[in-house]
């Protein structure tokens, strides 16, 4: 019996890769999502909050009270105003409206999360499917490389990579994606491997069905559910890691609105002007919390046994 390490980086003790044999088909996905609302109020509420956050991020240029403050504008005369009627979240040291910057920061954070997860999932699932389906030396090579990447705490490898590249949002995306794809590779490799050994796939192969077609028809649909669960569990972790990188000065740079960067820039003022750091910090907390809550709800619902800790 071997116990795989858990994806600590996914910010939840999600368990090791579940064997795919019990993964339900994609057809029941919609109805299961519907049931989430009835069964898990916390997850459902988190989903609602996330929808609001996404809407606010998309509509930031229209809903932000001072859209210019989200990017380059400064108002030295209005610096460090406490939260009030004109500036609900106060202003920062160059007079920018903190609320506007938090809203613009949502665009940055969610954008990073989407990009990182898209890259990780595409790269990871592709490599994982190849490894799990091809077997042999190719599988060994891919899985050993995966092991090496998994042997770094994600934040550490991101940090090292971000140190090589120049600090920017793109750097953050590359650095985090580089540490995140192995989880998807491992996940889909195990799905692919279990699908590969099923009788109907053997039969299809004997009939001369091409491997590509088998992957498309059988492996990918079976990977959908675990990958979806993993994506929602990971989003919170990606947002936290991105914020940490820019907090350390390895991610987004001024004047980009980025939550981690905003906390960092207000840190020295925290004892006297708490709002400069507190609101972007809370934004990270709330967003990460909702993603984690939703991810857990989805996991329990779609893949209940994986919640158990071991396979």
């Amino acid at each position: 019996m071997s116990i795989h390490p858990s994806p600590v980086t996914s910010a939840a003790p999600a368990a090791p890769v579940p064997p795919a044999s019990r993964v339900p088909g994609a057809g029941s996905l919609a109805s299961r999502l519907g049931r989430l609302v009835g069964r898990d109020r916390l997850a459902a509420a988190s989903a609602v909050v996330l929808v609001v956050i996404v809407l606010l991020a998309v509509l930031a240029p229209w809903v932000a009270p001072f859209p210019g403050d989200g990017t380059t504008a400064t108002h030295p005369a209005d610096r460090l105003l406490a939260p009030g009627a004109a500036h609900w979240f106060g202003t920062d040291q160059v007079g920018r409206d903190v609320l506007s910057r938090v809203l613009y920061g949502a665009r940055t954070s969610l954008g990073i999360a989407v990009a990182v997860l898209a890259i990780s999932a595409v790269v990871g699932v592709t490599l994982g499917v190849v490894a799990g389906f091809a077997g042999g030396w190719l599988r060994d090579v891919i899985m050993r490389v995966t092991d090496v990447f998994l042997a770094f705490p994600a934040l550490l490898l991101s940090l090292a990579l971000a140190a090589i590249l120049r600090p920017s949002v793109e750097t953050t995306i590359i650095a985090i994606a580089a540490t995140w794809w192995p989880w998807y590779a491992r996940l889909s490799a195990s799905v692919a491997q279990s699908v590969r050994t099923r009788p109907y796939v053997d039969a299809a192969r004997c009939l001369g069905v091409s491997p590509a077609r088998i992957v498309w028809r059988h492996v990918l649909p079976n990977s959908l559910t675990p990958v979806l669960v993993q994506l929602s569990l990971d989003a919170g972790g990606v947002i936290l890691t991105a914020a940490s990188l820019s907090y350390l000065g390895l991610g987004a740079t001024e004047p980009t609105s980025e939550w981690g960067l905003m906390v960092q820039s207000g840190q020295s003022l925290f004892t006297t002007h708490w709002w400069v750091s507190a609101f972007p910090g809370l934004a990270i907390l709330v967003t990460a919390f909702c993603f984690n809550m939703l991810g857990e709800g989805l996991r329990d619902l779609l893949d209940p046994r994986a919640a158990g800790g071991r396979s």
């Binding site: 919170g236 907090y247 981690g260 910090g281 907390l285």
Partner: peptide, 8 residues
């Protein structure tokens, strides 16, 4: 606890 940025 898992979602809170440690620096905050």
């Amino acid at each position: 606890a898992v979602s809170a940025p440690v620096f905050l």
